[in-house]
Design a protein around this nucleic acid. Structure first.
Lengths: 223, 223
DNA sequence: ACCTGAACACCGTTCAAGT
DNA sequence: ACCTGAACACCGTTCAAGT
C-alpha cells in the first residue's frame, strides 16, 4: 500500500545556477565533500532533487563551477604587486590559502586537466613569467613548473585538511605524522627519520613558499 | 515469491590480500577507476562480494595497497645512477611513466597526505638531495619541492590520461586543448594564446623533466 | 517553463547462513 | 575459518506528473 503524501508547496524564489553553486560551496565548506549530495542540496534549497538538472548537467559540472568561482576570487582579488616575483608569490599563496579555507578545491583541481580554474591560474602566472624576462622558448616550461608545484603541494595540503576534524589543530596532526616516521625502519628510511626531528616546528605555508622561491631561483639561474 | 538458486560451488584456491591487489590493478589498468567495484572483483575472482572484507578493511585500503605496490616498483626497480641529479631525474621519470601506465595512481597519490607510497618516494629523493650537498636546514624544503612538483604534474597528466580513450593519441588531445585556448578572449588570456601556437609539438615528458631541472637549478643556486 | 519526488540502476558494506 | 550472496542504506540521474 502506498500512502500519498500531499506535495510540498512550491517555492516562490527561482532557482539559478549561481544559487546552486553558492549552496554547494556552503555545504562543501561546512560539512565536507562527502556531504554534498543532490538530495542534501535539494533539502537546503527547498526543492526536489531533480530540479537541479535544469541548471547543471550533472554533479561534476556543479563541482567545476564551484571550483572556478573560488579560483576566480584568488586570481582577480587582492593587490597585484609590480615586481613579478612578488606577484607570483602572491598568486601562489592565494591558491594555498584558498585551499586551506576550501580543502575540496584541492581535490577538484586534480580531477581534470586544463579545466578553467587552472587556465585562469596558468595565465596569471605566465604573464608574470614573461615580465620576469624569461626567453620565449622557456616560458611555457617555467609557468608549468610553478603551476604544477602549486597544484601538487596544494593537493597534499588539502588531503591533510580533509583528514583533520574541523577543530583539530595542525600541530597535533604533525605530531602524529612524526610518530609514524619514527616507527619506520631506521635503515630503510634514514632521511625520514632525520626529518621527523624538526617536524614539530614545521610550517606548511613557509615550506610552500620556500618551494616557490626555489623554482624562481631556478628560473633566474637559467635566464 | 523468492526463487532459491543453488549456491555456487566454492573455489579451491584461497583468496589473499595479494591476489585482491593484483586483480584490482588489472581492473584499474584495463577498465579504469570507475570499473573497480567489489562486485566486479568478486565475479573476476569467482567469490562473493563480502569475501574481500576478510583481507582488506574497505575499498580505500585496497586502493592504497595497489598504489603502494606500483610506487614500490618504481622506487626499488631500475638502476640507481651514482650522480644525485641523475638519480633524482630517474626517480621522477619513473613516477611519471608509472602514472602514464596506471593513471589511477595519480588520483590515489593526491587522496591522502603522507601515505606510504609518498613516504617511499620522499625518502629516495631526500637521500639524493643530501648527496647533492644541500645544507641540513634546506633539505626538507628541497625534497618537498621536488616531490610536490612530481605529484602536481603527475596528477594533471593522469587526469588527462583518464579522459583519453585507450587508443586515442595524445596529439589529437593536444589539438583539442589548443583549439580551446584559441577560443579564449585574446585580451584576458594573452599568455595562453601565445602558448597555443607551439602546443602541437609539445612533449609532456620533456616538460616534466624541464621542471625537475628548474628545481634542481634552484637547489644548486642556493647551495 | 519550471518544479516535484518516486523510481531506477547502481554503489560499499554488513551479516546470517552455509561448508 | 572462510566464503557466499541477499539485504541495507545509501548514491546520481531520469522522468511522468503536477503547477
Amino acid at each position: 500500500m502506498t500512502t500519498t503524501r500531499p506535495r510540498a508547496p512550491r517555492r516562490t524564489d527561482a532557482l539559478s545556477k549561481e544559487r546552486l553553486v553558492d549552496a554547494a560551496i556552503e555545504v562543501l565548506d561546512a560539512e565536507g565533500e562527502g556531504a554534498l549530495t543532490f538530495r542534501a542540496l535539494a533539502t537546503r534549497l527547498s526543492t526536489g532533487s531533480g530540479a537541479m538538472y535544469h541548471y547543471v548537467a550533472n554533479k561534476d559540472e556543479l563541482l567545476k563551477a564551484a571550483t572556478d568561482a573560488v579560483i576566480a576570487d584568488v586570481v582577480n582579488g587582492g593587490a597585484q604587486p609590480r615586481d613579478p616575483s612578488a606577484a607570483i608569490r602572491g598568486l601562489a599563496l592565494g591558491v594555498f590559502d584558498a585551499i586551506d579555507a576550501h580543502p575540496w578545491v584541492g581535490t577538484q583541481l586534480t580531477r581534470e586537466p586544463w579545466q578553467f580554474a587552472i587556465i585562469q591560474l596558468f595565465e596569471r602566472i605566465g604573464v608574470q613569467v614573461q615580465a620576469l624576462g624569461v626567453p620565449a622558448a622557456a616560458q611555457f616550461d617555467s609557468a608549468s613548473a610553478l603551476v604544477n608545484y602549486v597544484l601538487g603541494l596544494a593537493g597534499q595540503y588539502a588531503a591533510g585538511a580533509r583528514l583533520l576534524a574541523r577543530e583539530t589543530d595542525r600541530t597535533a596532526f604533525l605530531g602524529l605524522i612524526a610518530a609514524e616516521w619514527e616507527k619506520l625502519d631506521r635503515h630503510d628510511f634514514p632521511f625520514m627519520h632525520q626529518m621527523a626531528d624538526g617536524l614539530d616546528e614545521h610550517d606548511d605555508r613557509a615550506q610552500f613558499l620556500a618551494g616557490i622561491d626555489l623554482i624562481l631561483a631556478g628560473i633566474e639561474s637559467t635566464r
